[in-house]
Design a protein around this nucleic acid. Structure first.
Length: 210
DNA sequence: CCCTGATTCGC
DNA sequence: GCGAATCAGG
């Protein structure tokens, strides 16, 4: 990949917007963040002219990925305000609240209800599961989840990255709220345990007859 | 560990 | 000019 006018253009724009080098690299595709940084310096715009310092965002592209066969980089969001923009935030909309209803046979301990139980904001990029049947979770799965939640990393919204589980735990209205934070399952927004409860096959829906 | 940008330096 | 390797830091 070479620095065509268009690519440089994008680079300049994104850099000005406060996007991180890795984000820009990902957007452009075919280049590493190092390449981006190098270019930025060569262009002499290293110092983001007193612009709003957007908090760095997650992105993977450290080590080496030179001749990355590159792939059609999805185009998630359209650069948020450089002020407090945060990629993960865009991808991890706090799911709607919902009181532990029939879903949690357990006490009102920490019973998050499936985030996707409603038309949550779906990131433009990777789609979320179509129909998260939601509510009935097998006892084993539930137990597993509760177990995992005990070792959750308790991350705050700002601490989430593309590879941390974004399952919310607790009540958003209180301090007793955090995100799981364990390593996500490849391509999913949640860790293995939470993917399990979020992406119910579609069966297990032995709806009570009526 | 994850990530950030800055620099160096062989190509 | 380019960017991987490396450095320094959060």
């Amino acid at each position: 990949m070479s620095w065509t006018d268009e690519r440089v253009e994008t680079l300049k724009r994104m850099w000005a917007e406060g996007q991180s080098a890795s984000q820009i690299a990902k957007e452009l595709g075919g280049v590493t963040r190092n390449a981006v940084i190098g270019k930025v310096h060569r262009l002499g715009l290293s110092n983001r002219a007193g612009a709003a310092p957007a908090r760095p965002a997650p992105a993977a592209a450290s080590g080496a990925a030179p001749a990355a066969k590159e792939k059609p980089a999805p185009k998630p969001e359209a650069s948020p305000a450089a002020a407090t923009a945060q990629a993960p935030a865009a991808q991890a909309p706090v799911p709607p609240e919902s009181r532990p209803a029939a879903a949690a046979p357990e006490p009102q301990d920490a019973a998050p209800t499936p985030p996707a139980s409603r038309k949550a904001i779906v990131p433009a990029g990777q789609p979320l599961p179509p129909q998260p049947s939601a509510n009935e979770i097998s006892p084993e799965t539930l137990a597993s989840v509760r177990e995992v939640e005990k070792t959750a990393k308790r991350l705050t919204l700002m601490e989430l990255t593309e590879r941390t589980c974004k399952w919310p735990i607790g009540d958003p209205a209180t301090d007793d709220f955090w995100f799981c934070g364990l390593p996500v399952q490849q391509g999913k927004p949640y860790c293995e345990a939470h993917v399990g409860v979020a992406f119910q096959p579609m069966s297990a829906r032995r709806d009570r007859k009526r």
